[in-house]
């Protein structure tokens, strides 16, 4: 009871930041404020990633998402939204629909999130379920509650090797049976082609049409 888990404290702090700013994105009418709120919300999410032991993903979230995506978005805001278009109020009818939708989706998603006892966290889950495996785990958890939370950090080496198709994180005896575990060489390579295509496509749309002759088509 008196044993405050700092991990939990940080979690709640980041969760409040993430959700609070997300709500602000929804409620705000000003597009610039929305963008700023989104930055904070996504940064909060990055903090949550770090807490979950996903250091690399958290860093990427900060760099690509918060850095890249938002710069893009703000660019878009600056280029397109002048004067009257910056703030756009939604009608009251929209809000009623939105409130109903929020209610319905939350009524579905929150019970869903809590529906699996195994997922309530190491200690809580162990106290509620009774299987032998789990009681063993419970003992383990009780023995060392402090360390249980951050025990598995995926190292960048593992991620990097898995991206070229070598899995070092798995139990190696299991790999001898002939079927290799998934290595992510293909997506890693092919996504580069994707990015190239996207770049060309975006450049195609964004660049002005070279004025040569009028188009033949309606």
């Amino acid at each position: 009871m008196d044993n405050i888990l700092w991990h939990s404290v940080f979690f709640w702090a980041f969760a409040v930041i993430t959700c609070g700013f997300a709500v602000m994105v929804v409620l705000s009418d000003n597009i610039v404020r929305m963008a700023v709120a989104l930055i904070f919300s996504l940064s909060g999410a990055a903090g949550l990633f770090l807490l979950a032991g996903a250091d690399f993903v958290g860093a990427m979230q900060l760099m690509i998402y918060v850095g890249g995506t938002l710069v893009l978005l703000i660019f878009g805001v600056m280029l397109t939204a002048q004067g009257p278009f910056i703030s756009l109020k939604a009608g009251s009818g929209d809000w009623i629909i939105a409130v109903v939708m929020v209610g319905l989706s939350l009524a579905m998603l929150l019970p869903m999130a809590w529906s699996v006892p195994d997922w309530h966290g190491p200690a809580m889950g162990a106290s509620e379920t009774k299987t032998t495996k789990q009681t063993a785990l419970q003992e383990e958890a009780e023995a060392d509650q402090e360390t249980v939370v951050v025990e598995h950090n995926v190292s960048v080496t593992e991620i990097g090797l898995s991206l070229v198709g070598v899995r070092t994180d798995l139990n190696q005896e299991d790999q001898e049976s002939g079927q290799l575990p998934e290595g992510y060489l293909l997506p890693f390579e092919i996504v580069s082609v994707h990015l190239l295509v996207i770049l060309i496509g975006a450049a195609y749309l964004a660049r002005a049409k070279r004025p040569r002759k009028p188009t033949k088509y309606p």
């Binding site: 939990s8 993430t18 959700c19 929020v102 989706s105 939350l106 998603l109 966290g121 190491p122």
Partner: peptide
Amino acid sequence: MFTQPIGVAHYLVVGAILFVCGIV
């Protein structure tokens, strides 16, 4: 609240809120 360890469910709740915010 702060004495309980965090589980997947907590994260799912945050995710659900983000999801709903996004949809709205």
